[in-house]
Design a protein around this nucleic acid. Structure first.
Lengths: 216, 216
DNA sequence: TGCTTTATGTAGCATATAATCCAGAAATGA
DNA sequence: TCATTTCTGGATTATATGCTACATAAAGCA
């Protein structure tokens, strides 16, 4: 649920209309717009820009979300949840090994280029912030850990299935994680769809070189 | 030479002292301090911080360098020149192939972790700016091109020396470039020396997998 | 109909920021 | 000495920014 500040804490939950004047906008929709804008423009987003983008006055924004940082964090919650579902889950909830990694990078390309060139919101924020906002640092570290683990699990499955050799799983996961970061920064830097496509191909070729001769 | 605004245009060039009151500081030293500070703190550096860091008043800074962006660009000129000398030249001016690439990543690690965790100044700026400052976009694109080319040349040398297979040089150069970006963002994100060291090892292992069986 | 509660719009506050102005200082050459 | 040129320190300007105050609007409840 959308983490709002006031009202409706659990009021609307019971069919009961909450006390006082009702909101004239949909917080969920506003959060969605904020997510889009933050993703593209990062922390430099100003509260006036948010006014324009969300179509709300500052009072409404602050009344609903508390502060700029809280709004960003609410947007990040949503972002992470979606990234988990669309990027990580397919990498984790499968029997595949190397195939799953290939698919992951293909999905990552789509993910990093929806709309304009945006890359990964969290990685962008981390790079932009450069360690000065604790909330971002913590989130970014946690997120990278999740991605790294998912990649490692996929490599372990591949090794167990005899698809690849069993050595240096950690090193290879680290290398893939590094490629994920580089890929996102490439997208952020304005790499074209074609360039990113070629990059994904190169990754595929390279993970392909980890494949043992088929014994089937 | 340090690109200053006023005075000494070509005056000091002829041994002639320039007219008017002489500068009471060394522009070269000031630029060095600006480079350090910009490298660590990016574009968010304020003119007051520059006052503190350079030990100069705003008037002196503006009189000497013109504007914040111009000072940043002067610092970037120096940065790029040094990166060319210390990172790229050893990769270009050598007969080695894969060895040179290994050495490049080792040097890159040192480069990206001098002082604190800083990564590459240009890549950081690119990520931070996100495409809104044209000067940065252009510089970053040009720089990445230089790195990519140097890596490609090294791979071509390796292929010609029979050290590695000749196929997909472009793809592999692209992959290495992506690793360079990821490596820098890792450093920027606060990765420890140990983590970065392991990453360099992984890169070595995997460029090593491109090595053909020794025929000597 | 008051009274309470919540939301909204307008205006504003305190601070920060890039850049400029200006009076005075320090050098030159006549 | 004086005129000219350039540098320096400190104040200043115009604008931006995150956030808040306050009066008013719209709902429920008594």
């Amino acid at each position: 649920m959308t983490a709002c500040e006031n009202n409706s804490k659990a009021a609307a939950a019971r069919g009961k209309r909450p006390l006082g004047r009702p909101r004239q906008f949909d917080p969920d929709q506003a959060l969605e717009a904020a997510l889009e804008y933050f993703w593209k423009n990062g922390m430099r987003t100003t509260t006036r820009e948010l006014e324009q983008t969300l179509g709300l006055s500052q009072s409404s924004i602050y009344n609903t979300f508390g502060s700029k940082l809280k709004l960003l964090e609410a947007a990040l919650d949503r972002y992470e949840q979606r990234a988990d579902e669309q990027l990580l889950r397919p990498l984790i909830e499968t029997e595949d090994g190397l195939e799953a990694i290939d698919r992951f990078f293909v999905t990552l390309k789509k993910w990093a280029t929806q709309g304009d060139h945006r890359g990964c919101m969290l990685i962008n924020l981390m790079a932009e912030d450069g360690g000065s906002t604790q909330e971002i640092v913590v989130r970014a570290r946690r997120y990278r850990q999740r991605v790294r683990n998912a990649l490692k699990k996929a490599l372990q499955r591949a090794a167990q299935a005899g698809e690849t050799f069993a050595g240096d799983i950690d090193g290879r996961a680290e290398l893939l994680m590094c490629l994920v970061l580089g890929f996102n920064i490439s997208a952020r830097g304005g790499a074209s769809q074609a360039e990113l496509g070629r990059l994904v191909d190169s990754v595929r070729v390279h993970t392909g070189s980890w494949r043992l001769a088929a014994t089937a």
